[in-house]
Write a protein that binds this DNA or RNA. Structure first.
Lengths: 114, 114
DNA sequence: GTAACCACTTTCCTTTGGGAAACTACTATC
DNA sequence: GATAGTAGTTTCCCAAAGGAAAGTGGTTAC
């Protein structure tokens, strides 16, 4: 038996995967994180970099990413205050996940379309 | 420089990841695949195993999974015809993806909630 | 003082995903 | 002839996701 697994283990795996997908899900979260991995940016700079996103959605997604500690919101006491978003050190842990997904996605497209 | 990457590489990675997530997305696709990995099943058996799913959604998701070659639909010429769904050999390639996602999801829950 | 910039928020609308229930066409059983 | 099962489809409905456009409260440049 190579990978024998109990039903309990299986459902808890499923729950983990669903949790992970919840964090990564939606049209904009990954593009925003990747934009900030390149360099920290201010709100309007992200708007320009991530093409097509509306301010409502950007504000909402940044909050979600902040809650999940993937993005840090820095407030600087200049006049007027400047707010700079950056990818957290913790967002590094997504690397493995993104590489695996990217590899599978590339292979899958070849299989289905090519 | 450890992981220098061009903008083109980065966007193509992003596209790959989004393609992968498109295939795995939604409330039911993974539960269905995992149910069929345990054993091949008929329509109404899947209905019982994957709790809460409606026949409309199940039919729709099975079509999606079939198009992506993760599930195979076998028709047997009994009277009446019996139709058995099974996880394809190709669905094995999801293992790495699911393990990585599961690991990250488990760690993430600990970080954010625990 | 007026025009523009910044970081959003608010309102309204459309699209998408998914659920409930009924229905279909066929067959088998009592 | 009535009931039940098999493998779905159809219709109607609701909620969440996301887009467009305008507004807000402050500051700065001209």
């Amino acid at each position: 038996m190579e990978t024998e697994i109990t039903k309990t283990e299986c459902t808890s795996n499923l729950k983990n995967v669903i949790d992970a997908l919840y964090v990564l899900n939606g049209k904009w979260k990954l593009p925003i994180v990747l934009s900030l991995v390149n360099s920290p940016k201010r709100f309007n700079e992200i708007m320009k970099d991530v093409e097509g996103i509306s301010p409502k959605i950007l504000a909402q997604e940044l909050k979600h990413l902040e809650q999940n500690e993937l993005v840090v919101r820095n407030v600087y006491a200049t006049t007027p205050v400047s707010i700079v978003y950056e990818a957290s050190p913790y967002s590094e842990t997504l690397k493995d996940v993104l590489r695996t997904l990217s590899d599978w996605g590339a292979g899958h497209r070849k299989k289905i379309i090519g």
